[in-house]
Design a protein around this nucleic acid. Sequence first.
DNA 1: ACTTTTGTTGACAAAATTGTTAAACATAAA
DNA 2: TTTATGTTTAACAATTTTGTCAACAAAAGT
Lengths: 192, 192
Amino acid sequence: MALSKEELIKQTAKDLFFSKGCLHATTQEIADAAGVNRSLINYYFRSRDLLFQTVYREAVESLKSQLDKVLYDNTPFKEKLGIFIDVYMKELLKYPYRESFLITEICSKNFALKEKKKSAALAHFLKEIAEEMEKGTLKKGDPIHFVFDLLALMSFPVIMTPLYQKLLDISKEKYQTLIAERKQLILEKIFN
Amino acid sequence: MALSKEELIKQTAKDLFFSKGCLHATTQEIADAAGVNRSLINYYFRSRDLLFQTVYREAVESLKSQLDKVLYDNTPFKEKLGIFIDVYMKELLKYPYRESFLITEICSKNFALKEKKKSAALAHFLKEIAEEMEKGTLKKGDPIHFVFDLLALMSFPVIMTPLYQKLLDISKEKYQTLIAERKQLILEKIFN
DNA sequence: ACTTTTGTTGACAAAATTGTTAAACATAAA
DNA sequence: TTTATGTTTAACAATTTTGTCAACAAAAGT
């Protein structure tokens, strides 16, 4: 079934921002990419700024709910981690620049930080990590660092694709296989 | 001694882009931040676009030369790595968004990719890594993955500061100490 | 001192981007 | 068929951003 135009505009904006890295596309560019009249953006979202805010909010939401869905259940830790890496990296390949978009929005001046409630799933995950550290499955330390490491190892090479392809002089195909290899590598590295 | 205005403009632009994360500042914003008349930007750089290109080129250059300076010498591997992490993280804290800027510039449509000569220092470093793997000091694998891991572990938590501070509900101070702890942690993790 | 060059500024013009409005259009209900 | 409702469009207006230019100031050269 066809997407409503409102949804189409939003999805296209996300595609431009998160996939193509056009972090400050104009309304005209978004409208063209969506194949709709630019005025429709104002009709549905009132202003460019509100469209950006909407996309921002939904991105944070979906980021949180993705984390929640995976982290907040009772599969054994190691297995859960495998699933997490799988899910997260699939999403990363679809939306490599989502976090970058969020960062630039937060940095943009007219931005008001809101809600500060820590994700329950995350707290749960941190506790699990601490338990694994107790058991000796994981190297001891602040669980936050474990989370940093995990997210960094997954995200960074994906985010930096165009730059590192250039700097390291690697072909697109080779880079893709490198990324694909990483799921397994990260698991090994983490449980060394 | 006072900076020439041309240099001042460039430095201010870098400060806005790389430190403050204003990846698409207007010429007026740059001029204001530098305390100069906006026309001076056109006088020295002809156009906004050329200023951006200049900053981009210099950032890639300095990124390369920083890597070269550290990687291309004869201190023992482990020690060299310590220095590298030190230097790189110091630079990261000064310019957390430098890589993000490069990425968005590369993604921006009117961008022509140029020079594809691999850094000699990097090649040298990769060979050293391979040797350490032979010796058993490092876990075997594609040395590129080692470089990915290293850069990811350093850069990512810094780049994501504003977002993760928010999501993890961590105070600015706490976050800073976490980052500061990482140099040691990364070394340990790498040589597990 | 005078001329030439370089740097600096404000005013203006041009271009790009956004927001608004009214009219055209479609669709379904009355 | 008319009416009402929501959608879509083009034309226009307003705003923002960029680029140019002539005038002026400062410095350097003769």
